[in-house]
Design a protein around this nucleic acid. Structure first.
Lengths: 256, 256
DNA sequence: GAGTGGTCTAGACCACGCG
DNA sequence: GCGTGGTCTAGACCACTCA
């Protein structure tokens, strides 16, 4: 790759924009636009440093951003090379319900169906690792977009604080928030399992759909520092309306 | 936070393990074990540098690893603080079929049902942005675990090369690989949309399941440098057998 | 042995937050 | 004005790769 002619003017040392960021953007552009192709080597670090008349550490900072963005990889003793985008990798993000719905221009709402104390049955005692019959807090709610119910959630918290349940705190009825408010321990990790299923009769009536409607089921368990479960929940998403989207690859907006 | 007593012995300057990594691991442990709590400040960088008798740049490298792992965040002029884990964030990874199945101790296999050239119908011409009736490559296959079919895939490639279709290349029948082999342009980005559904009759017979079985549907489109679609596919996953799992939070194995 | 990236140093100047 | 993190320098030594 020919650096000399193209570049020196492209980096302004007196700019408010950090030099390493300018260098990062320069190579990002080359890669995204295909001027540098997968497998091709970047110039060695010392060469980049010389042509731009900057320190090698600054070059390394720029390259570390490129590595971070998945655009290149380095090999000790060999060089730095443009990566191949691994399009087989798949990452689905399930965003916050209110944000997601608002983003789509619809109006989100949530309705609390019930809050009460229940005694742990076999399933719950297993999930929360408590003896059968232990008192647990139970919440159930429905999330809607434009008044159409989309999600039905049931949540259980291992609780000990004898705190009253306030209306205000239900503005964030996430499992982790409920655990913070009513549990002993601070939740630090969360496990979710998603699978596809078909609505039960109960779910169908609450989501106002017919039997045999496909749904996502997301089971969430949250754990404290000691990896003990402190909360468990089950959310039913209307599978025909709710979608998960994954983007992988090289985009111009790797900005930040 | 009291650094002085705890620490100096904990870092070995002559170890093969980089100093920045030792420091990173030290603070990681403090945070995961709860000795440093969310919101609490780390000691200032110059102080860490002094107590361990190392350069501030090395401290910064360690902290940048902590930031990268999502354990802390820095604020210019204020300090560096332990982050709160955001347990409401959800990321589902859908791994490579063969790897996932092998990991579970089962034997994966894939069977090619058909390869042929088809003329684009309305849907396909829309998805691939080609005129109606354009020739496209079509692949369909079934992925199985222990001889039980789990996934049914149909893939379409916008092609131009008059290349024969080799058996060997079907070892990686991923959309991006097929596009590399048969398309004009190098695929750089991939979009996938996942939703829940119910098998059609055709899918039911191929997956050997009853009607009304719930499934995941994953639609994938891949694009080249110019954001033109080069391939499109639809994968049907048995929703009762295939699950997606998401872990969020602080774990001891944030190692690498 | 020449070339490469990985780590580390001991300074420097700056912009920001806060009292 | 002081303390903080953000950027940058001009060196240094090392381990690795490859011919």
């Amino acid at each position: 790759m020919e650096l000399q002619r193209i570049s020196k003017e492209k980096v302004d040392k007196n700019s408010v924009i950090p030099i390493y960021y300018q260098i990062f953007k320069l190579f990002e552009e080359y890669i995204i636009k295909g001027k540098l192709k997968p497998g091709e080597a970047l110039p060695p670090e010392h060469e980049i440093a010389e042509t731009f008349e900057i320190s090698r550490m600054t070059v390394r900072r720029a390259i570390s951003e490129l590595i971070n963005a998945g655009l290149v990889y380095s090999q000790k003793g060999k060089g730095t090379f443009v990566a191949k985008p691994n399009l087989n990798q798949v990452i689905f993000e399930l965003g916050d319900f209110h944000e997601e719905i608002t983003k789509k221009g619809m109006t989100p709402s949530s309705k609390l169906l019930g809050v009460r104390i229940v005694k742990a049955d076999k399933i719950l005692s297993n999930k929360l690792e408590v003896p059968l019959g232990t008192n647990c807090l139970y919440f159930s709610l429905v999330l809607s977009a434009d008044n159409e119910p989309l999600v039905y959630e049931k949540k259980y918290i291992k609780y000990s604080k004898q705190k009253p349940i306030l209306e205000t705190e239900l503005k964030d009825p996430s499992l982790s928030n409920l655990a913070v408010l009513h549990g002993d321990h601070f939740p630090t990790t969360s496990k979710r399992v998603l699978h596809a299923s078909i609505v039960t009769e109960e779910e169908a009536s609450i989501l106002e759909v017919e039997l045999n409607t496909p749904v996502f089921v997301v089971e969430q368990t949250i754990y404290d520092f000691d990896k003990k479960p402190v909360g468990w929940g089950r959310s039913i998403y209307r599978g025909d309306r709710y979608k998960l989207t994954s983007y992988i690859g090289w985009f111009a907006n790797t900005s930040k």
